[in-house]
Amino acid sequence: MDALLAPLLQPMTMVFMQRALAVGAVVAVVCAVLSCFMTLKGWALMGDAVSHAVLPGVVIAYALGLPFALGAFVFGVGSVGLIGAIKQYTRVKEDTVIGLVFTGFFALGLVLISKVRSSVDLSHILFGNLLGITDADLLQTVLISLACLALLLVLRRDLLLFCFDPSHARSIGLNTGALHYLLLTLVSLTAVAGLQTVGIILVVAMLVTPGATAYLLTDRFDRMTALAVLSAVSSTVLGIYASYWLDASTAGCIVVVQTLQFLLVMVLAPRHGLLARRRLS
């Protein structure tokens, strides 16, 4: 029995593993809940854009000793405002504008990191540093995650209605403009939280994949949320273990496990999977 459990329990005796698993799980929960709205709203590209565009904000916040959530918020929402403005006042199409703005912001972030030689380690921001997370980062990440999670849970019905039928949301007096920006703000903040676990490049996977996996498994939103959380947390835990035993990139392991889960579900899902569809048709 001990021989079987040892590989699972032995890493848990180390503090850095305990911390990684705890923070990873908390971040996974908030990312998973948000990912349900992202996939239903069709905002994967927007999520990708916002998560990259927060980089200069994070670097500036680090350099000035401010909470990085603040920098992420300013640049995340700022990038979306800029995308909207360029789309409105020029003839350039939206997907082009999104691609243009987020890479521009991301590049600015890279320049800033290379000039501001502080405690900021580029590779930690790009690829995450879950196993070596500092106390300050850990605290901020957990606080941001819990705040976002609370907002998502309190407003989930309004956000769901906004994703499903903004016209109706508007006609019953909801402020759809505010909901739009609230959702984008939550993406910016959650991206900063996800940055700690998988880094800024892969954070969009956390914001899309769990929702997509769950979407194939159920036709009820509440169950979809629960399944997305299950998928995100389990792949984070498995990914951290895999990274420990293989001595491989933590971020890479987490996202690979997540993607494998999706592929498995895509084939085997009871009603919306490829096999089930073939049987039905």
């Binding site: 239903l40 769901l160 499903f164 039928d165 159920t218 009820r220 939103f221 979809m224």
Partner: peptide, 10 residues
């Protein structure tokens, strides 16, 4: 045409 009929909602 404006409604997403795959939306997970009853």
């Amino acid at each position: 045409e404006q409604v997403d009929w795959d939306f997970p909602i009853r």
